[in-house]
Design a protein around this nucleic acid. Structure first.
Lengths: 236, 236
DNA sequence: GCGCTACTGTGGTCAGACCATACTCGAGGA
DNA sequence: TCCTCGAGTATGGTCTGACCACAGTAGCGC
């Protein structure tokens, strides 16, 4: 029965077990598609379908030509895959916008909480982005991009790659909604000024080690913005 | 240049924009592969690569034959895709085990916090699983499966589908590690008894509306178990 | 009117071909 | 000897066409 299962799944499982057993580690090259197909007794197109999944999920990178940079190479960079998954699910209405925002709230609160708690990690990157946001000639899109970068910098500073990937993905998933929400604001400049102030306050609280205050500020920061832009309920 | 980009991406983007614009909604059927290929000017194999990605991500379900259940149908069930993504990333060492456990901690704390806070949601499902776990003749694997089910029931009770999907995925991702960790325990029966007790305590706190206590109990519950099984650092 | 059969439409898979690309290696010249 | 350049080769990217398995449907014969 197993051999009647879908051919591409065979390929996927073979690679997954190779990963689990340590036969494949990041940096390794997979066998050429034609060779994989012959080894597993499936067609090359089935191999390609499996590789396509792995590529979108951020597990491999493929390169044409020959030499060390060609072929399929294990990379394991989760950001892209998480973004794609969340974005598509939101688009297909598998994830309500509200739930995405609430989840962002949970994760971001946890991030600043931890950052403020154990002062091991540096917020230097976040400060750099913060300063960049003070430029006066930013378009709305540029400002929002920096905003996303700032929140992501905080997540990365906390040192948890899973949370960082999830936050990046959540942000990407609702990016188009954030853009259109900003366009609906009555006075963007005023909002931008407020956001800048709130960002500074949050980072101040984090740097001061005041976890409770940082958490409260972050929650207000996110909740207020989405409410103001008409993107989500004010209360969960 | 964009039109010389990868053919399967064209297909993926076409479907994504159709979803975003509401031209496709859950329950709809996609055009047949051959028709999609002709419409978009790509080969059928490229279409199939895109559909494979959508299938693994949980956006579509494909069926052979003819009639209403055949073809590719939009379903938007995120659980499978999230599980696959996290499982593969953990296998490929893109996500350290510690980070997965810590993220689970963050999400689960938030879940019980919210459940205890606004008493709108019912914990009836969780109680059912809890009772099932009292059966005396459970194997380790069965107990762990129910354990996973219990935690997932709590996440679903909180009403946030994103968090529920993430928690389910995180659990799946580390399932094999949890299994092998349980096998290393000196006295499984004693641990199981303790876990049962902790589960009851957590649900009691939730039902009593004591958010702070529920949160503390959950954190201890998870942290202790992983520490005992030698799967993660005790402190972040 | 009923039941069976052939047809049709769908995804699943494979084989083969061709192209673009990027490295490799050797021949030939400076 | 060393450099340069061109042919060769290995790889992914794509398309085409073919065949199979399966499920519903229509039409035919009784």
């Amino acid at each position: 029965m197993t051999d009647t299962a879908r051919a591409w799944r065979v390929v996927l499982e073979k690679i997954e077990t190779d990963l689990l057993d340590g036969r494949l580690v990041p940096g390794d090259r997979l066998p050429p598609e034609r060779e994989l197909a012959a080894t597993l007794g499936v067609g090359r197109s089935s191999v390609r379908e499996a590789l396509r999944v792995l590529e979108v999920m951020g597990l491999i990178r493929t390169g044409t030509g020959s030499g060390p940079t060609s072929g399929a190479i294990i990379i394991a960079t989760p950001d892209g895959g998480m973004s794609t998954l969340l974005r598509l699910q939101v688009a297909a209405q598998g994830f309500p916008l509200d739930d995405v925002v609430q989840t962002r709230l949970v994760l971001e609160s946890a991030v600043v909480d931890r950052l403020a708690g154990d002062r091991v990690h540096s917020t230097a990157d976040a400060h750099l982005v913060l300063d960049a946001m003070d430029a006066a000639d930013l378009t709305t899109a540029e400002f929002l991009a920096l905003d996303a970068q700032l929140h992501l910098a905080l997540a990365e500073a906390s040192g948890n790659s899973v949370i960082a990937a999830m936050m990046g993905g959540l942000r990407t998933a609702i990016e188009s909604y954030v853009q259109s929400g900003a366009a609906r604001l009555p006075d963007w400049e005023a909002t931008a000024a407020r956001l800048r102030r709130e960002h500074r306050d949050i980072l101040d609280a984090v740097d001061a080690g005041d976890a409770a205050r940082a958490r409260g500020l972050v929650e207000a920061h996110i909740t207020d913005y989405y409410a103001e832009a008409g993107l989500a309920r004010t209360t969960p």
